[in-house]
Amino acid sequence: MFKFDPNQSYQMPAHFGPRYIGEKSSGWYHDVTMMMVSYRTDREKLAAYLPAPFEVAEEAIITVYYACNKQVDWLAGHGYNMLGVNASVVYQGEKEQLKGSYSLVIWENLTDPILAGRELQGIPKIFADIPDHSVLNNDWQCNASHFGHKIIDLGITDLQPVSAADIAAQQEANADSDNPMGLRYMPAIGGFGPPAINQAVTFPSKSEFSEAYIGTGHIDWQQLTWEQNPTQFHIVNALKDLPVLEMLPAIVTRGKTNLILPERWSRPLA
């Protein structure tokens, strides 16, 4: 009879045994290219999507980001693309108060990181087709779609290089607010009734940038119908309805990221 080992890590289907964890499966993503476009939005409309005790930060800022992840250790060198949306928030818990970003949604084009992120870390990941970004005449473009219907177009133009010293200074300045957070929500069996799990979480990571550029960003969310995207249309339409009050400088980076930090591992918030 199959028995669980409390010292091992399992994912469904667990009865085949624990997932591989070893020297080859570190959390390093050795080749990461990112595009980040941020803007100020309406506080009240953003607050409607933040469960307590999360609150909108002093500035209601949305960041839409794309990452082309290659040479991923825990995927045996394979990679995938992602496109996510963060909101600047403050977590006002009974024992903890943290400034950081709240993950509203992350689309990814590979099942493995979607399941690992949802089950192990509580990150709200869902699937989309996300091709590699394109670059033409210093114009960077990327997009995501599902069921053959576009979700978003993201672009950055007029990029100018940022010095290594400025990169280091910016990373140090943001160290205290580098707290990515989310809601680990697992519904009851069948989908109705009190949830099986409903807890605020944080999932730290560490990035090292070798190159950075600043430019002008633009975002074009699509308006979708149930027929076009039956499982995600309400998400896309909600994000489209968040008004863009002011665009902020857009950023492109190249570098590497580590998602497994033993000293700062993903955990529930108190």
Rank of each mutant, 00 (worst) to 15 (best):
D220V: 12
D220C: 11
D220S: 14
W221E: 10
Q222G: 01
Q222H: 10
Q222C: 08
Q223C: 08
Q223T: 06
L224D: 04
L224M: 13
L224A: 06
T225Y: 12
T225Q: 10
W226F: 14
W226I: 05
W226H: 15
E227I: 00
E227K: 13
E227A: 13
E227Q: 15
Q228N: 10
Q228D: 11
Q228Y: 10
Q228P: 10
Q228L: 06
N229G: 00
N229V: 06
N229I: 05
N229S: 15
P230M: 06
P230S: 08
P230F: 07
T231A: 12
Q232L: 12
Q232M: 09
Q232G: 00
Q232F: 08
F233A: 08
F233Q: 06
F233E: 02
F233R: 02
H234P: 00
H234W: 12
I235C: 04
V236L: 03
V236I: 12
V236G: 04
N237H: 07
N237F: 05
N237P: 06
A238W: 01
A238K: 12
A238V: 01
A238E: 11
A238N: 13
A238R: 13
L239M: 14
L239C: 07
L239Y: 08
K240G: 00
K240E: 08
K240W: 00
K240D: 05
K240P: 02
K240Y: 04
D241C: 01
D241N: 15
D241I: 00
D241M: 05
L242M: 10
L242Y: 04
L242S: 03
L242A: 03
L242E: 07
P243S: 05
P243R: 07
V244T: 11
V244N: 06
V244A: 00
L245D: 05
L245T: 00
L245C: 03
E246T: 01
E246P: 03
M247H: 09
M247T: 01
M247G: 06
L248S: 01
L248N: 02
L248A: 03
L248R: 04
P249K: 10
P249S: 06
P249I: 02
A250Y: 04
A250E: 05
A250K: 07
A250M: 09
A250V: 05
A250Q: 08
I251Y: 08
I251T: 10
I251A: 02
I251M: 15
V252G: 02
V252W: 02
T253M: 13
T253I: 11
T253R: 13
T253F: 04
R254I: 03
R254Q: 12
R254P: 01
R254D: 00
R254F: 03
G255W: 07
G255D: 09
K256M: 13
K256F: 03
K256G: 13
K256V: 01
K256R: 15
K256T: 03
T257W: 03
T257C: 14
T257V: 14
N258S: 12
N258A: 11
N258Y: 10
N258H: 09
N258C: 15
L259E: 12
L259S: 14
I260N: 12
I260L: 15
I260Y: 15
I260T: 12
L261H: 06
L261I: 13
L261V: 04
L261G: 05
L261Q: 08
L261W: 02
P262E: 09
P262C: 09
P262T: 06
E263H: 13
E263Q: 13
E263P: 01
